[in-house]
Design a protein around this nucleic acid. Structure first.
Lengths: 341, 341
DNA sequence: CTGAAAGCGCTAACAA
DNA sequence: TTGTTAGCGCTTTCAG
């Protein structure tokens, strides 16, 4: 009686390659990882066997044995945001040649969900974690602090990061925009943005800074229009129409992001409103979209690509090895065609 | 001599929880996974110990022991595309209550890179793979076929999937659009889209179908304008300007996607061109962006949300258990305001 | 309801 | 340059 043939649907193991090539499992392992010295003959034989069998290594076993995982968890609030693809590009660029791989998780601007995603990710013992914002549940902060791996919080530097942070100060960004608007002579300023109960802390901080500068100048926001759900041009139009119907005498519309700002701009142009003469507009983010509009919306660049790059460099240990650091980038203001000069 | 204290930075193990709670590792494991019967007292004690220690399970060890991984690999060409966030939403929605977690990989429209991403993903032994398109390298197809897990190719049904596919026929979509355009009386039709050497197979298939209908009607594409890199409104504007300068007598512009189509539309409106009277326009994708434009671009909906949902259902085994299947969805044509009625 | 033993597939460390 | 041994931290299986 010969022993039964192995289940053909069972994934192949190192042992299969070892048997097929007549080389020990250990040497096969070395060849496949390019570790240690192996003779060219042996190497060839092993590679040939692995290729012809269609062997795919089991990283689960490898990671358990070596206590090393080449994964970096990246936790962002949303994929549809336009903001994060660019951050991801920066991250991938840098990780590309480090052997590290980004793995994306989405928190939907929800702290509980974020906590679960962090827990899930940490349970795979990644080499590092990059996550958006500095506001997290206590449990999240505790987990991250305990994890013993590099943790970089991105986008925002207003607050206390668990370890390191790379971002801009949204508070200062709001101030800067307010100063530009007041400097241009606008006085009756309205705000259009996310409904604040939702946890978009960065938008809130921008608004805080914005309002502070206003009140120093003896001004305040004269009307507001909130929305919920995703941003879209259409929503920007609707909000703008509603606000201007209600408060026709405002002379500036400050939007919490470029997408709704662009919608508002289109609405104003459709309705023959004198922009920026009678009415000024501004958004936030420096979205590529804006470049194609009939007129360029005033905005601030959030340094997304650079943030991604710097964060990845910290994880990859290209910067100061392991030392916590906070990198605050400086967003640039673009007056576009919608703020008087 | 007492034994040295364990490294405090070492991640906690089941054993630590076991010792802290005075319950065997096995029972701790059962509690943490909600498996098997455990007395309420024991359960409480274990949970309390785990929580106070801040224990995060090691899924690597768990997966190796149980031969089960709750991950689903999702491989898409690009994050910045606007197309894939919606697919992801559909996937996440369905996986949400199955205990499965999507993990995203990006191939950058590059077959070699896709192959590497597939290899990486399979090496983590996921429960399923969802990937865009039906064109893959031979090695990729072989790996997927060997993997012994559900594999769903999405977006496109023109071709032979490895196992299952959910999508639309881009070839038929192109035909349908051409029929509508010819039916509306346009005759001098131009194409604006990606430079074809790049591997956007779906755009190519749409163009194939489009051209076939044209040639049956004795027509052909009278001019073309290609671009490379990402789509943007600005690029759409530039291409449109270039093409109309060169061929002022065309009466229809067929764009390979909505983003450049929208840019073209804005350019036409800026230049007082009579749309859709003198010049018709159409794109592809059904992007939300279009709803906020001054005029609505004609387009076809690619059923992205539905595709994501169906694909995830196959992976989750909610549909016919394991049987290969091909689901072809029917894209809907929206004439918008840029095709004569 | 609880525990002990065996082993998942691989790699570190050491031996030859 | 190659092979052997002993786990990595967990779950399966089986025994109480």
């Amino acid at each position: 009686m010969s022993k039964p043939p192995p289940d053909p649907r069972r994934p192949l193991t190192l042992r299969d390659v070892s048997e097929a090539s007549g080389v020990s499992e250990m040497t096969v392992s070395r060849v496949l990882r390019n570790r240690g010295d192996v003779s060219d003959t042996t190497r060839e034989r092993v590679l040939e066997a692995a290729r012809s069998l269609g062997y795919v290594p089991n990283k689960i076993a490898g990671a358990l044995a070596s206590q090393r995982v080449n994964l970096v968890g990246v936790i962002i609030p949303s994929l549809s945001n336009m903001v994060f693809p660019e951050v991801m590009t920066g991250i991938s660029e840098v990780l590309e040649d480090t052997g590290l791989q980004p793995v994306v998780g989405v928190s939907n601007y929800d702290a509980d969900r974020e906590e679960r995603v962090i827990y899930e990710m940490l349970s795979w013992r990644p080499s590092g974690i990059i996550l958006a914002g500095v506001e997290h549940s206590d449990a999240s902060r505790a987990m991250l602090a305990q994890a013993g791996i590099p943790v970089v919080e991105i986008m925002d530097t207003d607050g206390t990061p668990v370890v390191s942070a790379v971002g801009i100060s949204h508070y200062r960004a709001g101030r800067k925009m307010a100063e530009a608007i007041i400097g241009a002579g606008y006085r009756r300023i309205a705000f259009l943005g996310t409904h604040m109960p939702v946890a978009d802390h960065r938008a809130r901080k921008r608004l805080d800074g914005f309002q502070e500068v206003l009140s120093r100048a003896g001004l305040s926001i004269v009307d507001r229009e909130y929305y919920t759900g995703g941003s879209s041009l259409l929503k920007g139009r609707e909000m703008t129409e509603a606000l201007l119907k209600r408060s026709p005498d405002v002379d500036f519309l400050y939007y919490s992001n470029d997408m709704i700002g662009a919608g508002g701009l289109l609405w104003c142009l459709d309705h023959g409103i004198d922009v920026p003469g009678k009415l000024g507009l501004a958004g936030f983010n420096g979205m590529e979209l804006l470049d194609g509009l009939p007129r360029k919306l005033a905005t601030m660049d959030a340094c997304r690509l650079e943030i991604g790059r710097r964060a990845a460099e910290i994880i990859a240990g290209k910067r100061s090895p392991g030392a916590p650091e906070i990198i605050e980038l400086e967003p640039t203001l673009d007056l576009g065609d919608t703020i008087r000069r």
